[in-house]
Simulated scan of single mutants.
Amino acid sequence: MEFRRLGRSGLNVSEISYGNWITHGSQVEEEQAQACVKAALDVGITTFDTADVYANTRAESVLGRALAGQRRESLEIFTKVFWPTGPGGPNDKGLGRKHILESANASLGRLQTDYIDLYQAHRFDPTVPLEETFLAFADLVRAGKVLYIGVSEWKADQIRAGAELARELKVPFISNQPQYSMIWRVIEPEVVPASEEAGISQIVWSPIGQGVLTGKYLPGQAPPAGSRATDASGSNFISRLLGNDELLTKVQNLRPIAEEAGLSMAQLAVAWVLQNPNVASAIIGATRPEQVQENVKASGVKLDAEVLKRIDEVLAGVIVDDPSLGG
């Protein structure tokens, strides 16, 4: 496993991080989730990403139990705040001070830890003054409950505004967590330049295109049993991709490139996002330990310019890079 600095901070993260968005508390039983976390630890992953809303708080609880007993200083535990997780009261969502502080304390309890390494605003909240949001984050940092602040799926102008406030408040704002893959490149035109300017890195989710870039989904055929496309918690995210036969056909044409590079399709996809110097870590999920063991081999892989060019040529016409579609 190789490591990268997150933004212009002193925090090192594993190039491959383990996320439990759809799996823990939903798609797999806890015993299997524990096995996947153990596999992640065994292959050198130290960075674990979750959110309070995943499986309506159950994912945080499962991860907390799975990491119990590990040396805390050897882990980077990330979570997020924004979406409602309680009874749906008027303050049970968004980035207002009340919701942020209450959500942080609840996440600490579920994760069985005294502090969160990176606390992320899961979306931008246009209904709350940004000053209120960042002051709440600053108070969490000064209380020692949070070490660093990040965001997820923020647009370039939102990142710039947040970075300016963070500097004024002396809050370590160091990351953005967007969707990013060979086929979904909406962060490249605007978000990445703004992030580089602000000194923050990307921690990217869905580097294998929600499973599409593994090549297991074939045009005109039903999804394989047990795949993300068959799980209610994740199928809505992947359905639009599976209905695109041109995309599924082009993805199959990546197979010779992966084979020549000595990589699986999934490894090629994860390695591709790591070629972007503004990407600090790629989040992988898993329903089986073998998936962790396979995908982690993308760490440290260098793809030369000719391979990157061939990938672009194969996927021409199905790459999405419109920055207005991000966030």
Rank of each mutant, 00 (worst) to 15 (best):
L101Y: 05
A166G: 12
E294I: 04
S107D: 10
T230G: 08
G209M: 00
Q27I: 12
A232L: 04
I311W: 07
N278V: 15
T79F: 05
H99F: 08
L242Q: 03
P178F: 03
G96K: 02
S26G: 12
V146Q: 01
R240N: 14
Q221I: 05
V307W: 07
D245P: 00
I100P: 11
G109T: 08
F78D: 10
R288D: 09
I22S: 11
E164P: 12
D49W: 02
L140D: 03
T46M: 10
D49I: 05
F3L: 12
P256S: 10
A68L: 13
E31H: 13
Q275S: 12
I283D: 02
R8P: 14
T47P: 08
F48K: 00
Q202M: 15
A104N: 10
S201W: 03
A225P: 12
E30S: 06
L242S: 11
A198P: 05
K309I: 10
S201V: 10
D157N: 14
I284E: 05
V307D: 10
I319K: 06
E168Y: 11
G94W: 01
T46N: 01
E29I: 13
H24Y: 15
H24E: 13
D125V: 08
E29R: 15
I45Y: 00
T249S: 14
Q291K: 05
S9R: 01
G19H: 08
E260G: 12
T47W: 09
F124R: 09
L135K: 01
L6D: 07
F3N: 15
S103C: 11
L101A: 12
V37H: 02
I208R: 05
